[in-house]
Simulated scan of single mutants.
Amino acid sequence: MSDDHSPAPGQPSRPPRQSRKGLTSTGVRKAGSKSARSRSREFALQALYQHLVGGNSVEAIDAFTRDLSGFHKADLVHYDALLRGCVQTQAELDALIVPKLDRPLAEISPIEHACMWIGVYEFQHCLDVPWRVVLNECIELTKEFGGTDGHKYVNAVLNGLAPQLRSAEVESDRKAP
């Protein structure tokens, strides 16, 4: 048997097997390995995208999102907090984000914008979630739904805001061995 992955004559071509470690071939977590909180962020991102792009009402977006496949597996309380909280405080969230940007907010993709909203909102209002978890979750969301290097941009902005919004926690982490 050879190490060559080419199919035997007459056999259909198949992609290589993916590992069972909970990641897809692109490094994104598989749906089955996502927590209810991660799923709530994912649905909130989709809803916030609709808000940013379509300007739809929160009620219409919420009704549509709740009908999506897999929504019942999400943390509904966290989803509600993210969707409604980000929309209600969007001006305050943008006021924190804009100074960290190297271009006008209008030039930021709606996916990156929504991921930054989620991160900043969680930094401010979800103190039970460690700042590094917030950062990682937003990076993962951007990897899955955003452009090729969008996660790097979201990482830079949220990493720049973490010391301001979670100063004691960030400082404590930096002092730890």
Score class of each variant (00 low, 15 high):
M1F: 14
M1A: 11
S2L: 13
D4R: 02
D4Y: 08
H5P: 09
H5D: 07
S6L: 15
P7K: 01
G10Y: 00
P15L: 05
P16V: 06
R17C: 08
S19K: 07
R20A: 11
G22W: 06
L23M: 13
T24G: 13
T26L: 10
T26N: 15
R29K: 14
G32P: 03
R37W: 04
R39K: 12
R41T: 06
E42P: 02
A44C: 00
A44Q: 03
A47W: 02
Y49L: 13
Q50C: 11
G54S: 03
N56R: 12
A60I: 00
D62Y: 01
A63R: 03
F64H: 07
R66K: 02
D67T: 11
S69E: 13
S69M: 02
F71I: 00
H72P: 02
L76C: 03
Y79T: 05
A81P: 09
L82T: 15
G85T: 13
C86A: 01
Q90V: 05
D94A: 14
V98E: 11
R103S: 12
L105A: 10
L105H: 01
S109W: 01
P110S: 14
I111V: 15
I111T: 15
A114E: 06
V120W: 10
E122D: 10
L127C: 09
D128Q: 14
D128I: 14
V129I: 15
R132G: 08
V133L: 09
V134M: 10
I139S: 07
I139C: 07
K143M: 14
F145D: 10
D149F: 14
A156N: 03
A156G: 03
A156F: 04
L158K: 13
L161A: 03
R166I: 00
E171F: 11
D173Q: 06
R174V: 08
R174G: 02
